[in-house]
Design a protein around this nucleic acid. Structure first.
Length: 256
DNA sequence: ATGCCTGTCACAGACAGA
């Protein structure tokens, strides 16, 4: 089965690309981020007409995550993370689908550094790690898919120098990601491409796509029980080059 | 050092993104 993480950067503006993606690639599970849509305006009918059941956790204007499943209704397990009662950002959604547990994750960007947004990013990371630990203890196949807003290694970015002072590359961000992996998660893209040089995001600005000036921030982490079923991983890069594309490309893992 | 580009909301330009 093909499981996808896709930051759509506005599901309303991206709906033609998303429907096209579902039709062409027929993924089994799709985790969406940055819906920029309230719960009420989620295009449920369009998604259903494309053959997908869905659960979503929206927010007007920004954030927002969803989980889509082909020919199946995902069974929601959780929305949001514990640990910060006044946090209203829609950034975490978890569901059971196709015999797996899948989470759609939209980690805070964290810029500028230093500042309250960066502090929020690091706190959110710890709250995610706490949830991840609980999921690992269930000893089931789990996929944590999303936009982590972390460039984990120097070979995950076109230019270390260009991104050096960015929140995505700070040592604290990388350490938080490594601590999460160290619980026992497998970074599926890294497993498939251990030498790096694979991007999932290209900025809209400064001709980044044309220059192939990208980086890898969309990750699919596998529990040991999911990693045992690993077949392949990759990026559907061609969708970044189309009309009215998201600045992220769909990123996927295939499991037996 | 700054803006580059795009989407949203709302109807001009600020905010958010990364």
């Amino acid at each position: 089965m093909k499981i996808v993480s896709y930051n759509v950067n506005g599901i309303k503006a991206r709906l033609p690309r998303l429907i096209e993606y579902l039709a062409e690639e027929a993924p089994d599970v799709v985790c969406l981020q940055e819906l920029k849509s309230s719960d009420e305006t989620f295009p449920e009918k369009d998604v259903r007409d494309a053959g997908y059941g869905a659960v979503w956790h929206g927010q007007k204007g920004f954030n927002g995550v969803a989980i889509l499943a082909r020919g199946e209704d995902p069974v929601e397990r959780r929305r949001g993370l514990d640990g910060e009662d006044d946090d209203v950002h829609s950034r975490y959604l978890e569901a059971d689908v196709g015999g797996l547990t899948v989470a759609s994750i939209y980690l805070p960007n964290g810029n500028p550094v230093p500042g309250p947004k960066f502090d929020y990013k690091l706190r959110w990371f710890e709250r995610l790690a706490a949830r991840a630990r609980t999921l690992l203890a269930e000893e089931r196949p789990v996929v944590l898919a999303g936009d982590y807003n972390v460039i984990a290694n120097d070979d995950d970015v076109y230019s270390v120098r260009a991104m050096d002072s960015d929140a995505l590359m700070q040592p604290e961000s990388r350490q938080a990601y490594r601590r999460l992996l160290a619980q026992g998660w497998t970074d599926s893209l890294r497993t498939r491409f251990p030498g790096g040089g694979v991007w999932t995001f290209w900025d809209y600005q400064a001709g980044a796509w044309q220059r192939d000036a990208g980086f890898r921030i969309d990750h699919l982490l596998l529990s040991p029980q999911a990693a045992d079923r690993f077949v392949d991983a990759g990026v559907d890069k061609q969708f970044r080059g189309r009309e009215k594309a998201s600045d992220h490309a769909p990123t996927w893992v295939r499991l037996r």
